[in-house]
Write a protein that binds this DNA or RNA. Structure first.
Lengths: 234, 234
DNA sequence: AGCGCTTGTCTACGTTGTAGACTTTACTCG
DNA sequence: CGAGTAAAGTCTACAACGTAGACAAGCGCT
C-alpha cells in the first residue's frame, strides 16, 4: 500500500532549503520570541536533526541575520518616486507596520548591525540604504547631502519604532490605565509625572506621531539644505 | 605569621556588594563585550563562586538590567534649566558620549526595555524620562505635549546613536577607505552609491550631525506646538 | 550498475544558567 | 566571653545549548 516515496508517519520529509528554514525560523520567532529560536528547537519544528540546519546557515548568528533579511526584504521601496518626501513617508509607515507585525525581530534589526561592519552585513539589509540613496539622488541631492538626509531620517525612524514598541501594554484586559501599563508599581513621589501620564501613554497613536515627526524632520532638512546651497552656490 | 584577617594569597576577600558586582560587570562588558559577561566569568573575575552572584541579582537578566542602570545613572539631567532646548541638547550630547564610552552596553539600553513593561523597568532607567518631563513641564508644556516632545526627541536621539555606532570602522590602520569600511566586498553593480560614499562615510562627524538634527527637530516641535495652541486656545 | 556530490543523522564535548543543600562568616545578645 | 542566628559564600548537580567531526542515506549522472 504505502508507496515508498510519499509514505510515512513522519510528515512527508521534503527536501529542506534555506527559504524553508528561514521561514520556519521567522515563524518561530514571531510566535515565541527570540529565545525560542534554538537550533534544536528549529530542527524539531522542521522534523529534522538540528545539525541539518548547518547546511543552510553557518551558525546561529547567521541564522538570525537571515531572519532579519527575510523581514527587511518585505519592505517595498520605490527609488523612482518623483516625490521623495512622500516616498520616505510611505517607507516609514511600511517599516513601522513590519515592526509591529514582527516585534520580536526588531531587536535583531537594531542589534545585529552593531556587531557587523557595514561591508559584511547581509546584502538584504543594505538594500534599503542603497535604494534610499538612489531615491534622494534622483530628487537632486548631492551624494553627501543624501547621506545626511538618510541618516537623520533613518535615525528618527528607528528611534520612533523602538519607542513605540517599548510602550506596549501589559494587560489589555485591565481597564484601569495605571495597572494596564504596570505603572502602579512606581513610587508616587519619585515619578509623579510619569504616573500622571498614564492615560496619555495608554492611547498612543504611533502612526500619526511618526508622521508628525517626519513632517518636521523632512521639511526641516529640505530647508536647511536649500539654504546651504543658496549660501555657497551661485 | 599570617594574621588571620588580612592574610592571604587570594586577593584579600572583602565582602561583596551589589555595587561592586555591577561595577565589575560593566568593566567586563566594556572590555570584552556582552557575551563575556557570564555568571561563571564574573564570579572568577571577583574571585568568588559564580553562585554568590545570585545574592545580588536574581538572575542574569537582572544583572544586565543593573548594568544598564549603572550607565544611565551617569547621565546628568538638570530639570530646572530655564532653557529647555539647550538642556535637551546637552543631555543628548552627554548620552552620545556615554554610548561611545560604553558601546557594548548600547544593545542593552535599546533592547531590554523591549521585553520589560514600562512599570517593571529598573527605576534608574525611568529617571531620565521623569526628569525630562519635569524639564518640559517647567518650560510651560502641557503634560501631553511634553510627552509628545519627549517621544520625538528621545526617538531621534536613540536612532542617531544607533546609526553612529553602526558605522564604526573595521580597521583604522587601513588607509584605503573602501577597505577600511569593508565595502569592497559589496557587488559594485548592486551597490554603486553606497560604495561611492565610502569617503563620506569614513569621516562621519557624529556630534555635529546630531546637533543639526536636534536643531531641526526641536525648533520644529516648538513651532508646531505654539501654532496648535494659537489655533485652539484664545 | 556504479560513482560522487549533496543532504541529513549520530555521537560527543565543552559551556551555559541556576536550583537546592550545605558550610562558613559576621554580628548580636546575654 | 560564648552561644545563637541571619547573611554570605560554596558545592554539587542538571538540563539545555551550540557545534565539531565522522558517518549514512539520497540523488543525479553516465
Amino acid at each position: 500500500m504505502n508507496s515508498p516515496r510519499p509514505s510515512g508517519r513522519p510528515p512527508v520529509k521534503a527536501r529542506l532549503s534555506r527559504d524553508i528554514v528561514l521561514a520556519k525560523a521567522l515563524e518561530l520567532v514571531d510566535a515565541e520570541g527570540l529565545d525560542a529560536l534554538t537550533m534544536r528547537r528549529l530542527g524539531q519544528e522542521l522534523g529534522r536533526d538540528p545539525m541539518s540546519l548547518y547546511r543552510y546557515a553557518e551558525n546561529r548568528a547567521a541564522l538570525l541575520d537571515g531572519v532579519s533579511e527575510l523581514v527587511l526584504d518585505q519592505l517595498p521601496i520605490h527609488p523612482e518616486d518623483p516625490d521623495w518626501k512622500a516616498q520616505l513617508r510611505s517607507i516609514a509607515h511600511n517599516l513601522r507596520m513590519l515592526a509591529l507585525q514582527h516585534p520580536n525581530v526588531v531587536p535583531l534589526l537594531v542589534t545585529r548591525p552593531l556587531s557587523t561592519p557595514l561591508g559584511l552585513r547581509p546584502l538584504g539589509t543594505l538594500r534599503p540604504l542603497e535604494q534610499i540613496l538612489a531615491l534622494l539622488a534622483a530628487a537632486g541631492f548631492q551624494p553627501a547631502d543624501a547621506l545626511h538626509v538618510y541618516r537623520a531620517y533613518y535615525g528618527y525612524l528607528y528611534g520612533h519604532i523602538l519607542n513605540e514598541l517599548q510602550e506596549y501594554v501589559v494587560d489589555p484586559e485591565e481597564n484601569e490605565v495605571l495597572l494596564r501599563l504596570g505603572l502602579h508599581r512606581l513610587p508616587a513621589k519619585e515619578f509623579p509625572r510619569l504616573r500622571a501620564l498614564a492615560p496619555a501613554l495608554a492611547d498612543y497613536d504611533g502612526a500619526t506621531e511618526l508622521d508628525q515627526g517626519l513632517t518636521i524632520l523632512l521639511s526641516g532638512l529640505e530647508a536647511q539644505l536649500s539654504r546651504q546651497m543658496a549660501g555657497s552656490g551661485a
